[in-house]
Design a protein around this nucleic acid. Structure first.
Lengths: 342, 342
DNA sequence: TTGAAAGCGCTAACAC
DNA sequence: GTGTTAGCGCTTTCAA
C-alpha cells in the first residue's frame, strides 16, 4: 500500500524533471522515446498512479462528458450511453453518469452536481427542465445536448426524434389493418415527458383519423413495467372488452399486455393486436414478435458523441440532428409476418 | 454564458472573504445563517457554480465511488449500481461508473482510469483480474470491494455469493422433480467468470447426483442474449432430442429458449423444463413464469455501499458479506405453480 | 464566527 | 527535447 507517490518522486527516481515526467504521461508529449520508456518503467515500479485531480485543475480540463438519463435500468438509455461512451472514449473522454428517476427536480440537482465537476459537455435526456436547470445549462459555457426528443425551444444542441410522430405512424399502421377501436396504455401524467408525447401523438392521430380516443389506460407513474403492462391490459379488457388493438408506451408494457392475453387465452393478433415502442430485444424474440418502433438508441448516443467532439473542436451552437425512427412490424399486429427463428 | 465566476467574485460581491464563501457552501460550515443566505443568494445571481476540481485537489477528496461492471446494459448490474448509488448519494458520494465488456484487459484499463480520478473507494465485479489490475487494486490505498462473487483469494472486501452453489440448488430441484437428462446453456469459455462458475457448479452437481453431464451448449461469447438462448435451444433439440430439462446461465437466455419451444409447439414444462438465473422482471411475467435464482442485485449494491461507508469511517479490511440467493420456482419447472396474474 | 497565508500536484508558458 | 517558474481555485491551518 504505497500511497501518495507523486510525479516528483518519479522524476527524482528517473533522474529527470517533473515536467518531463508530465510529458511522458501525455500521448503527444515531446519526450525522447527512451526517456519516456524509462520514466514509465520507474513509475510502474514505484506504483505511481497519475493524479487527474491536479491535472484537471491546472489544465482546466476534466475530460468528463456529463450525462443524465431517467433511469440506469432501461436498455434504451443504456444503449445510448454505450454508444456515446464508446465514441468519446476513443478521444480520451469519460462519461460521468447521473440518473433522474423521471423527475425534473432530481434532474436539476443532478445537473448542478455534474456541472460542479466541470465536464467538457453535458447531455440531458429530453427537453423539459425546471427553470433553474435550464438556466444552469444555458450558462454552463460548454456544449449542451438534449437527446431523445425534439424540444420546441432547445437550450442548445439536439439529437433526437419526435415521439409524437412515431405514434402517428403506429396509428396509421393499425388503421390500415382495418382497426378502429384502438386503446393506449401508458404512464399517468407527464413525469416521463417522452411517454407523454407519445400519448399526445396517439390522441392526435386518432382524431386525425376520425376515431374516438377514449380508451386511455393510465398504468401509474413511469416507467411502466412489464407487470404494470399486464395489469393495465386486464383493466382495459374489463373497461372496454371490444377493444381490437392496443398501443403501448413501450415494449416492456406491451410484452406484459401480451402475457396477460396469453393467460386469458386471447390470441394475438387474431383477438387482440398489440404494439410497443423501443425495439427492445424482447420485441424481436417473444411469440408473436412485437410490432414496435426502433428509435435507434445507440445511434442517438453515437451521433451525440460526434456532435460534441465537433463542438469541442470548433464551437458551434444550436445544431439539430434528427435520428429517424423506424416502424418494425411484428407478428403482434400482422398475421402474415414471417416468424423470426432464434 | 457567464463563464468563470469564481469564489473570489462571490466573496467580493457579498462583502466577505473567500473563506466565508467556502464555508457557506459546506453543510457544516460555521457561518452565520444570515451571512450564508446572503452569500448563496449573491452566488445564484452571479451564476456561480462551485468548482469541485479545485476542492478535490486541495482537500484530497473527490467524493467519487468508482465502480466497474461488465455491461451497462444488464438489469442485474444496473440494479446493483442503483442500490449502491442510492445509499452513497445520501452521504454526498457519487458513483463513477466504467464498464468492461466482460474483458479482463478492459477491466484493467478501466481500473487505472478510475484510480487516476482518486476515488474514495472502488468496487469491481467479480474476483478475477489481470495481475496488474490486482496490483493496482492492492496498492490503491482505498477500500476495495469485489462484488457478485466469492473469490478464493480476495483483494480486500467482498460482497457476494457463490454462483456455483446456486446451480447445485437448481440441479437438486430438477432431480427432485424426477429429471435426469438435464442440459446446460451458457457462454463459451470463461470471459463471464460468474457464468463460468455457474457452468462448473452445474457440472459438479450433476456428477454429485450420479448424472452424466454431456449436454453443454455453448452459445458464444458472453453475455448470452435472448436470441442466442433461442438458437442454443434449437441446437440442443437437434443434438439431444430426448433432453428433459435445461438450465440456462441467465433468464435472458432462458426466455429465448422458452420462445423457441413455443415456436416448435413444445409445451413448457410438460415437454421441456427450463430454468434461468437472475430473477429479471421477465422471469416473473412470461408464460409460464421462469424458475430462476434471485441473487438480490440491489441488495448487493446496498450492502457494498454500507461496507464502504463503514470502511471510510474507520478503516477495516478483508470483510466478507454474503448475500444469500434464493431459488424462485416458477411454472417453467413445476406444473402446479400458481400463475402470477399481472 | 470570520479572515490571511500557504499550498494541494500537476501543467501552461516560456526559456534554452 | 528538457527545465524553470508560476499558478489553476479552492481548503487547511492558524490566528483573531
Amino acid at each position: 500500500m504505497q500511497r501518495s507517490v507523486k510525479m516528483k518522486d518519479v522524476a527524482r527516481a528517473a533522474g529527470v524533471s517533473v515536467m518531463t515526467v508530465s510529458r511522458a504521461f501525455k500521448k503527444d508529449g515531446s519526450v525522447r522515446p527512451e526517456t519516456r520508456d524509462a520514466i514509465l518503467k520507474v513509475a510502474e515500479e514505484l506504483g505511481y498512479v497519475f493524479d487527474s485531480t491536479a491535472a484537471n485543475l491546472r489544465s482546466q480540463r476534466t475530460d468528463f462528458i456529463a450525462v443524465t438519463i431517467p433511469s440506469i435500468n432501461n436498455a434504451n438509455f443504456a444503449d445510448t450511453v454505450a454508444g456515446l461512451s464508446d465514441v468519446v472514449s476513443g478521444e480520451g473522454l469519460q462519461v460521468l453518469l447521473a440518473y433522474t428517476n423521471y423527475d425534473m427536480e432530481q434532474e436539476e440537482r443532478a445537473i448542478e452536481q455534474l456541472l460542479r465537476r466541470r465536464p467538457e459537455a453535458i447531455v440531458v435526456t429530453g427537453g423539459k427542465h425546471t427553470p433553474r436547470a435550464r438556466r444552469l445549462l444555458e450558462s454552463a459555457g460548454i456544449p449542451v445536448v438534449e437527446a431523445w426528443d425534439l424540444p420546441p425551444d432547445p437550450v442548445d444542441n439536439v439529437v433526437g426524434f419526435s415521439n409524437a410522430a412515431t405514434m402517428e405512424t403506429m396509428v396509421t399502421h393499425l388503421v390500415a389493418q382495418g382497426h378502429t377501436r384502438i386503446a393506449f396504455i401508458g404512464g399517468d401524467a407527464d413525469a416521463d415527458t417522452r411517454g407523454a408525447d407519445r400519448r399526445h401523438g396517439f390522441s392526435g392521430a386518432m382524431s386525425a383519423h376520425g376515431l374516438t380516443c377514449d380508451r386511455l389506460i393510465e398504468a401509474g407513474p413511469p416507467p411502466i413495467s412489464m407487470r404494470e403492462g399486464a395489469s393495465a391490459m386486464a383493466r382495459l379488457l374489463e373497461l372496454h372488452p371490444d377493444t381490437e388493438a392496443v398501443v403501448c408506451v413501450s415494449d416492456l408494457s406491451a410484452f406484459g399486455a401480451l402475457t396477460e392475453c396469453q393467460r386469458r387465452g386471447l390470441r394475438v393478433p387474431e383477438d387482440m393486436v398489440i404494439t410497443g415502442f423501443g425495439a427492445y430485444e424482447i420485441a424481436s424474440v417473444c411469440v408473436p414478435t412485437l410490432t414496435t418502433v426502433n428509435p435507434f438508441p445507440q445511434k442517438i448516443g453515437e451521433e451525440t458523441a460526434r456532435l460534441i467532439l465537433q463542438a469541442l473542436q470548433k464551437p458551434a451552437r444550436h445544431q439539430v440532428r434528427q435520428i429517424a425512427p423506424e416502424l418494425v412490424v411484428g407478428g403482434s399486429s400482422e398475421r402474415h409476418v414471417e416468424r423470426v427463428s432464434g
